[in-house]
C-alpha cells in the first residue's frame, strides 16, 4: 500500500513537471518576442534620447533668435518713431509758415482796401490791381494746404498708434520664449532624473513657471483695435469709483 502511495506521489510530481514543461514551451516564444521587442526598442530609446538632447541643445538658440527679433523690431520701431518725430517737427514749421502767409494775406487785403479808400478815383485800376494780386485765390490755396497738413498729422498719429503693435507682439514673443525655456528646463530635468533612475519631480518647475508667468509680459496680449476691452474698463471704473474701497473689496472678494 505504501509503495502504491509513493508511486502516486511520483506520478503527481511527474504531472506537475510535465505541466511546467508545457507552460515553459508556451512561455519561451513570449520571452523570445520580449527579447526581440527589447532589441528593437533599445535603439529607438537611444534615438529618442539623442533627439531630446539635440532638441534641448537647440532651444537656447531658438530663444536667442526670438530675442533678436524683438530687439530688431524695437530698433526698427524706434527708427520709424524718429522719422515720425522729424515729420511732426517739419509739419509744425509748415503750419507756422502757412499761418504767417495767412496773416500776410490779411494784412495785404487791409492795406489794399485802405489804398482803395484813399484813392477812390482810379478809373478801374484798383479792381485790376486787386484781381492781379489774387489774394483770395492764394488764401484758398493756403487753407487747402492747411487741410493737407492736418491730414498728414492725423496719419502720423495713426502710425504712432499702429507702432504699439511692437510692444504687444514683443510681449507675445516673450511669452513664447518663456514657454520654450520652460520646455528646456523640463527636458533637462527629465534627462537628469532619468539618468539618476529616480522619480521625475516637476513641482519645483511648475512653481517657478507660476512665479514668472505674469512678471514681465502678458501672455494674453493682443493687438485689437476693437473698443470692447476699453469699454469694459470704462464700465468697471465708472461703477467702481462710485463705490467705497471697502465695498469694492467685498464685491470682488475671492
Amino acid at each position: 500500500m505504501e509503495n502504491h502511495s509513493n508511486m502516486d506521489q511520483v506520478f503527481e510530481k511527474l504531472g506537475e513537471l510535465k505541466s511546467f514543461f508545457v507552460f515553459g514551451q508556451k512561455v519561451v516564444p513570449v520571452i523570445q518576442s520580449i527579447i526581440d521587442f527589447m532589441r528593437d526598442v533599445v535603439p529607438l530609446m537611444e534615438y529618442v534620447n539623442n533627439s531630446i538632447q539635440e532638441s534641448a541643445s537647440k532651444i537656447p538658440k531658438a530663444a536667442s533668435q526670438i530675442n533678436s527679433v524683438t530687439n530688431a523690431t524695437e530698433m526698427a520701431t524706434s527708427e520709424i518713431l524718429d522719422i515720425v518725430d522729424a515729420m511732426s517737427m517739419d509739419l509744425s514749421k509748415i503750419k507756422n509758415e502757412l499761418a504767417d502767409l495767412k496773416n500776410g494775406f490779411f494784412n495785404q487785403r487791409v492795406a489794399l482796401e485802405s489804398y482803395g479808400n484813399q484813392h477812390p478815383n482810379l478809373n478801374g485800376q484798383f479792381e485790376a490791381l486787386q484781381s492781379g494780386l489774387s489774394i483770395d485765390e492764394l488764401e484758398t490755396k493756403v487753407v487747402s494746404l492747411e487741410e493737407i497738413v492736418k491730414k498728414i498729422e492725423g496719419d502720423s498719429n495713426n502710425i504712432t498708434l499702429s507702432l504699439q503693435v511692437q510692444d504687444i507682439t514683443s510681449q507675445q514673443l516673450a511669452s513664447v520664449n518663456h514657454l520654450i525655456q520652460s520646455v528646456q528646463k523640463r527636458l533637462s530635468k527629465l534627462m537628469n532624473d532619468l539618468s539618476k533612475k529616480g522619480p521625475v519631480d516637476v513641482s519645483e518647475l511648475e512653481q517657478e513657471d507660476e512665479n514668472t508667468r505674469s512678471a514681465t509680459f502678458n501672455p494674453d496680449a493682443r493687438y485689437e483695435k476693437s473698443p470692447d476691452k476699453q469699454e469694459l474698463a470704462n464700465e468697471l471704473f465708472n461703477t467702481g469709483q462710485k463705490t467705497s474701497q471697502d465695498e469694492i473689496d467685498k464685491l470682488f472678494a475671492k
Partner: peptide
C-alpha cells in the same frame, strides 16, 4: 481691471490707445 481698481488706480487704458 478689477485688481487694478482694488489697488486704487485712478483710471485704466487698454493698449493700443
Amino acid at each position: 481691471i478689477v485688481e487694478a481698481l482694488q489697488a486704487r488706480v485712478n483710471n485704466y487704458i487698454v493698449k493700443p490707445f
